[in-house]
Design a protein around this nucleic acid. Structure first.
Lengths: 217, 217
DNA sequence: ATGGGCGCAATGTGATCACAAATCGCACAA
DNA sequence: TTGTGCGATTTGTGATCACATTGCGCCCAT
């Protein structure tokens, strides 16, 4: 702001990168509704940086679909058409079973217990009607499993799909009154225990597809 | 450079966007070897813009994997490990058959003839040992087919995989002496003619996998 | 009260500058 | 000849500024 050269340049974390990661996480977790408008100066003020780093963060987020850029350069979270939502769901249904399948041979007891703990957290958040928390915990469940697949490119790609769906998921889940942990999460854990690869693929695919299917209404 | 406000702001094409698209195309088509270093000022000079637009273009390209950013902020084309190459090939093998399958019911004679024309072009480029041209025509073959799938998100995702593989493909194909059009391209066209969906999936998967398989050497 | 038009505020874009870190080269010593 | 340290140049980062355009609000006329 007034300080001419305050922060050390880049070693710990460049400003633009800090803005990027923070914004990305918040979008992915559904903290913004679809179509939410933002301004470069506003983002800059939000993180106490100038326009330059916030512009760079926005560029990256636009590149992976987390933000939309209007023809005049205005920034906003995406408003997805039904076709686009179904397509993104199809991508998830294609990749995530593959990730789960690759994780299966490496899924030891400690991992399964961690997944069950997350399911417990989800149950609490459902009871509290904490939608943002629910989305975050739900994604954490999937990410925890997929990390075992040792497939970073596939995981990164999946996360950009989650990012694109973030605002829509928030809008979707907020008009949905969940009462319990998704049944498919329990099926996933059970299939992991049993080493049942086809069952695991099916459960993951169902879990991914079910939430987005009610958009067709 | 010296001009204070020369170009009209953004309507036709913002400078950063022009730089982004040009650079992205060149990387995807394999015009740079893996590990090729670049500088923001150099990119700016290359397109006759200042550092600001080239920085933004680089940010976007880093976001979708077309460029790597070292810890000190240095920019270079990615040098992929064998594991990463195999993973990207697996992603292609997962998504591209799906795209082809979705394109199949919409593939009329005009499309098939366009694909055959591209195959003819590929034959010429193979004869001329034009690697960059070969990669470009090869990707054009796939993109022409996939455009019919009416699945823009899937296609965009596939293109980012191509982008990541660009420099590696160039390095790979240049130490490979092709003598003819890939057999699988002809199989793809034949399966389209016959309306043979399983055969199409198999041909696409084989075509995608074969080129990258010899990396395991 | 409503609709249209004008003007100003807000916003994105790109150039430039100052600065810090990193990298490279060269000289000197072992 | 080879390894090491120092200094200059290169390079990325972030702030700021000028400017064009967009869009919003307000005012006036009907």
């Amino acid at each position: 702001m007034i300080t001419p050269t305050p922060r050390q340049s880049d070693s710990p974390s460049a400003a633009h990168d800090r803005v990027y990661r923070a914004l990305r996480t918040r979008i992915m977790h559904g903290e913004f509704p679809p179509g939410q408008a933002m301004t470069l100066r506003g983002i800059g003020k939000m993180f106490d940086v100038s326009m330059t780093p916030s512009r760079e963060a926005v560029r990256r987020l636009v590149a992976d679909g987390g933000l939309n850029l209007s023809a005049s350069g205005r920034v906003s979270t995406p408003e997805l058409s039904n076709e686009r939502i179904e397509e993104l769901a199809a991508i998830r249904a294609l990749i995530e079973p593959e990730l789960a399948s690759r994780a299966l041979p490496r899924a030891h007891m400690a991992l399964i217990e961690r997944l069950q703990t997350i399911n417990g957290t989800i149950a609490e958040l459902v009871a509290k009607h904490d939608d943002v928390g629910y989305i975050r915990a739900n994604l954490e469940f999937h990410r925890t499993l997929y990390l075992r697949a040792q497939a970073p490119a596939m995981l990164a790609l999946t996360e950009t799909v989650w990012l694109q769906l973030g605002p829509t998921m928030r809008a979707l889940y907020s008009r949905l009154n969940r009462t319990e942990v998704p049944h498919n999460h329990r099926l996933i854990v059970a299939a992991l225990r049993a080493g049942d690869e086809p069952g695991l693929r099916l459960a993951v695919r169902s879990d991914v597809t079910q939430g987005l299917r009610m958009l067709a209404v």
